[in-house]
Amino acid sequence: MEQQITIIFSYHRVETLPILEKIMRQSDVIILEEAPNLLFEKMLKGEISIEDYLIEEMFDFPNFSFRFFRILQSLFKEGKKILQIEPYMERLLYIHNMFLEGRTPKDVELNPELKEVYAIEKKASKALIDFYEISINSNFQEVVEAVKVFAKADAERFRFRDILRAEAVLKSLPDKGRVFIEAGAIHQYFKKYLCEKLKNLNISTVFTLEEIVKNITGKRWIFPPGDLLTIRYIYGVKENEELENILSARALIYIMIIEKEEMIPTKENKAPHILDEIKAVQLVNRLDFQDCDKLYRQIRFTNRKKALSIVKKFVSEKCS
C-alpha cells in the first residue's frame, strides 16, 4: 500500500472521540500531538493504569483523556504503532525540569535548541502578563493593542512549533501505510509546511466535527476571532488595522462567554462544545468595535453565565 496521510484537526473534547476512533482504527500509524512520556508505553500495555498516568501528567481534560487512552490501549493491542511527537513541548518540559532542579536561564541558553524555545516562551509570557496588567485600568483601545501584541507573540510560537513538529514527523513517517496525524485546529501552518515537503503525496485533512459545523455554518470549520487573528499573524498576512482591531475586540468578548469546563455529550446534545462555540462565534460576529467596548466594561468582572446573558440581551436589543 502506498503512503496515505490524514491530518486530523481536533480538540480534546469527548464529543470528538467517535470520529477519532473510527479514523485511527483505519490507520496503521497514529501520531499524537504530545510530548514523549516514558510511562506512555507502559500505560498502553496496561502495566500502569490510565488513572495513574493521568495523575502523573495532570491532563487539562481528564474525561476526554481517560476515554481517549482507553481507545489507544485497544488500538495498541491490535498492533497499531502509536507515537508521541511534539518537539516544542518536549523541549519546554525539559526547560521546566531544569528550573525545578535549580538550573538558571543561563544554563538553558547554553543549549541552542532550548535557547530558541525559551526566548519564544519568554516573549509570549511577557506579552500575556502585559495584557493582564493593561486590561485592569486601561482604555479599550489599549487593551485591544495588548491583545494584538500577544497574538503576534503567540503566532511566532505556533509557527516555530509547527515547523519543529513537521520536521520531526517527516523523520518518523513509514514508507507505506495509512498514517493518522493529530493536530489542533489552529495548527494550519503545520499542514502547509508538511504538504510543501511531501510533494505529490496523498495527504488529506479532516476536522473531526466538520459535518456538524458545515450543516450550521456552510463552512468546514469556524474559528473564534482570536484564532483568526493569530492565524493571520502566523501567515504574515498584509496588515489590516481595522480588521485586526475588530478581531481583537471580539476575542475579548468571546473568551468571557465560551464554556471552558468539560461537557459530556448526551442523547439530546451529542456535540455540546462545538455547538457552544458556534453560537458564541456567531454572537460576537454581530458586534462592532464600539459594541465590544461597551460590553467589555460590563462583563469583564462577571462570571461566564452572567456575561453570556448580558451579551445576548445586547445583541437582541441591537437587532430589534
Rank of each mutant, 00 (worst) to 15 (best):
W221Y: 15
L44D: 09
E101M: 12
A119S: 08
C292I: 06
E241D: 01
R286F: 00
E133M: 03
E21C: 09
A251W: 02
I5N: 00
I23C: 00
K122I: 04
V311R: 02
V14G: 07
I310D: 04
Y53Q: 01
L44W: 10
N240F: 13
I136A: 00
P225M: 01
S204E: 14
L283S: 13
D162Q: 01
H96E: 15
P105K: 12
R159Q: 06
T6E: 15
K45W: 13
L39Q: 10
A185G: 06
F64L: 00
C292Y: 07
I212S: 09
A183G: 11
L275G: 07
N63I: 15
A35Q: 07
F64Y: 11
I203K: 00
V315F: 08
K294V: 15
R103W: 02
R178M: 07
P105S: 10
A119V: 03
P87F: 12
Y53V: 01
R67A: 04
F207W: 10
V14T: 12
Y132T: 08
I129P: 00
Y296E: 02
K81C: 10
E33N: 12
N202L: 15
L164W: 10
K197I: 05
Q4F: 06
T104I: 09
R165N: 05
S27H: 05
I71C: 09
I246Y: 06
N215D: 13
E211Q: 14
V179Y: 05
V179H: 03
L252E: 05
E86R: 03
K294R: 15
H96G: 11
H273T: 06
K176W: 09
E47N: 13
F301A: 06
C195K: 03
L201F: 01
E109W: 08
G236F: 04
I299F: 06
I163N: 04
V206K: 11
I258N: 09
V213C: 12
F68M: 02
L39T: 04
I212Y: 14
F66E: 05
K306L: 15
L17Y: 05
I85L: 07
N137I: 05
L110Q: 13
K126F: 04
K279N: 12
G236S: 04
I31S: 12
S49T: 08
F207A: 02
N111Q: 07
I231W: 08
E47M: 13
E33L: 11
T208S: 14
K199G: 10
L247H: 09
K197Q: 14
L75S: 09
K306E: 15
E34A: 00
K176Y: 14
E239H: 15
I8D: 07
K192A: 05
K260V: 12
N269Y: 01
I95W: 05
L295Y: 03
E121R: 09
I234S: 12
P36Q: 03
K123I: 00
R103P: 01
I85C: 02
F68K: 01
R103E: 06
I85Q: 04
K313W: 03
L75F: 09
M98R: 02
A127N: 04
N97T: 03
R232N: 15
K318N: 04
C319Q: 15
